[in-house]
Structures are given as structure tokens and as C-alpha cells.
Amino acid sequence: MSAQFLYGGAGILLFALGLWSLLVHEALLRKLIAINIAGGGVFHVFIAIAYRGDTAPPDPVPHALVLTGIVVAVSATALVLALHRRLEQAEESAADAEGRSESASASSAAPPPRTPTERTPTERTPTELTPADLTPADLTPETLHPETPHG
């Protein structure tokens, strides 16, 4: 009983910590890590409750549920990361376009430097920084002058 409570309680604390971090932090990657920690906490609870003392065999059902949950979490994380990268591209291209129009008028402002979005063990090729990254459709008037969604 005390062992399960220790493990399960740790899961609940992880859930609360993840929730706090998700609500407090602005940066998307921190939010994503936070939600993964919260998810890990929930999975922790499932693992803890599978074992209810020496007399009974551990319950395989929560273990299987956690495996399913992990795959779901991985999928969601992958999609969030891909959306995040696409958003950064769109914002950089919008910023670049603004910079370009400014430099055209004032011939002083330079486009803001791109920040590396991924940490990699090897260096990225220079191709990553070519204007081919800036898809033309991001330069439509809607992106340059977005209507704020909140009307």
C-alpha cells in the first residue's frame, strides 16, 4: 500500500507540476515538455496501481494501457513539433518580408537573423538557410496583415 502510494503520489505530483509549467510558461517547447511530464505522471499512476500487494499478480491491463498512452503521447508530440516548426517558418518569413520592405524604404534594416530551431550533433548544411525555406504562400496579404483572430 505505501509503495503504491509513493509511486502513484509521485505521478500525481508530476501531473500537477506539468500542469503548472504548462499554464505558466509562454514558450511552446516548454509547454510541450510540461504536457509530456504531466502525461508521464498519469502513466505513473497507472503503473503504480497495477500492483496491489504480494498476494495478487500484477495487473497487465494498466501496463497495456500505458503502452497505448505512450504511443498516443509520442504521436501528439511529433505533430506539435512539426506544427511548431511550420509556425516558426511562417513567422520568420513574415518577419523577413517586413525587414525586406523596410530595407527597401530605409535601406538600413536587415532581416532578423534566423535562430537555429534544432540542436543537432552535426552541423546543418547551408541549404537550410536559403530563401527556399520561405514558401511564397506565406507572403500573402493575409499573413502580412493578419486579422487578429479575436476580432
Binding site: A56, P57, D59, V61
Partner: peptide, 26 residues
Amino acid sequence: LAALLLWALHATLALEPGPRLAELAS
């Protein structure tokens, strides 16, 4: 919230383990 959940988990674990899927599954 965490305190409430911890209490709920504690109360749940304190219950006599009722019917579980473990026995049926094995």
C-alpha cells in the same frame, strides 16, 4: 489540487482491492 488528488489516491488504495481484471486476464 495535488493535495486533493493525493488524498483521493490514498483513499482509493486504502480500499480493499475489489474485483480486478488481473485475475481474469491471467
